[in-house]
């Protein structure tokens, strides 16, 4: 009797219902080969990361043999393809962050409103019919958004700001903001729906309205996930390429004025890749150098985002 309950209560993990050691000794060779192949497939993820790091570092190091790190980080001109080449990454960084900043200014309030509405207010039917739409919006290719920014949003903005040039940072910023809103909203909403029902019920029992419950009970409890969604959204905006390459012009321009045209890191890579640069030239190496900067920036945001998510998660 005692023995029986003991075997029954032995925890069986879902992925490992069978002791591993026993299997090893009894199973035929094909099992081992299959397992090795599957492992190799899974390991390809690590190999890809290593390959990205190695390639970027290798080419970037050759780049920094010609250009000092100090010049790269402090000069305010980026003209690698000119006769008198200048390699200051600041104009590209300024363009990248101005556009990503506009995108965040658009997507944070919008995404938050959508998340609160879908998680706390929307009737079941509305939520079920709107969510597929938002997923579709996330699936629209970025090049189409680029078309939209250049030929729809910019002319629209020119009616409000008459002297807005055809290429500017405002329009792609807004479009990227709308583009990443579904992502921000869905990460925030996941965090808010993870807040236990009992908290909401307690709040309602005290006579709070839905709005009060949402803003004073659910939102504070879901803060970590909501903030993480903003940071992860920022990371996406920084890495966005086509909208910027199409609608912001491709001239590196050290300015923080969103009405002016500028190039971002990604737009510069596209611009160089469209031309035919010889392998091993300084221009060729420069896209890997700025690519490395881009990876470091997005990695930074992702790590911070994941950390915030974990660090301030309320557990119930």
């Amino acid at each position: 009797m005692d023995l029986n309950t003991a075997t029954l209560s032995t925890p069986i993990s879902s992925s490992m219902p069978y002791p591993r050691s026993r299997r090893r000794t009894t199973h035929p060779l094909t099992e081992r080969i299959v397992e090795a192949l599957l492992f190799l497939a899974a390991f390809s993820a690590v190999a890809t990361t290593v390959a990205i790091v190695v390639i970027l570092l290798y080419e970037a190091l050759s780049f920094f043999e010609h250009v000092s790190l100090l010049e790269f980080l402090t000069h305010t001109q980026w003209t690698p393809l000119f006769e008198r080449a200048e390699f200051g990454v600041l104009p590209l960084l300024a363009g990248t962050f101005v556009i990503a900043g506009i995108a965040i200014l658009v997507s944070v309030p919008l995404g938050l409103l959508v998340a609160i509405y879908l998680s706390e207010f929307a009737p079941h039917a509305v939520r079920e019919s709107v969510k597929p739409f938002l997923e579709l919006l996330e699936g629209v290719p970025t090049i189409v958004y680029g078309y939209f920014a250049l030929l729809f949003v910019t002319p629209l903005l020119q009616k409000i700001i008459p002297d807005l040039p055809g290429f500017n940072m405002l329009s792609p910023g807004i479009v990227i903001g709308v583009m990443i809103t579904p992502y921000v909203a869905s990460v925030s909403e996941d965090a808010m729906r993870a807040v236990p029902m009992a908290l909401r019920e307690a709040s309602y029992a005290m006579g709070a309205t839905r709005f009060q419950t949402a803003t004073r009970v659910v939102l504070p409890a879901a803060t970590s996930g909501v903030v993480a969604s903003f940071i992860l959204g920022m990371s996406r905006a920084v890495g966005e390429t086509m909208v910027v390459a199409i609608a912001a012009g491709q001239q590196p321009n050290f300015t923080f004025d969103p009405r002016e045209p500028a190039a971002t890191i990604t737009a510069y890579i596209v611009q160089v890749a469209m031309g035919d640069l010889p392998h091993g030239s300084i221009g060729y190496q420069s896209i890997f150098a700025v690519g490395l900067v881009l990876v470091l920036i997005t990695l930074f945001f992702n790590v911070i985002g994941q950390w915030v998510r974990r660090r301030w998660r309320e557990t119930y």
């Binding site: 990205i52 390639i55 970027l56 890997f288």
Partner: peptide
């Protein structure tokens, strides 16, 4: 654990970085 972390991080790598990887690795 290492593989899991890599899968998560790869999903967040900007697409253009895959282009740089391919340019260095596959093309040359």
């Amino acid at each position: 654990e290492l593989i899991e972390i890599n899968v998560t991080n790869l999903a967040a790598v900007p697409s253009i970085v895959y282009g740089l990887l391919a340019l260095g690795l596959f093309v040359y």
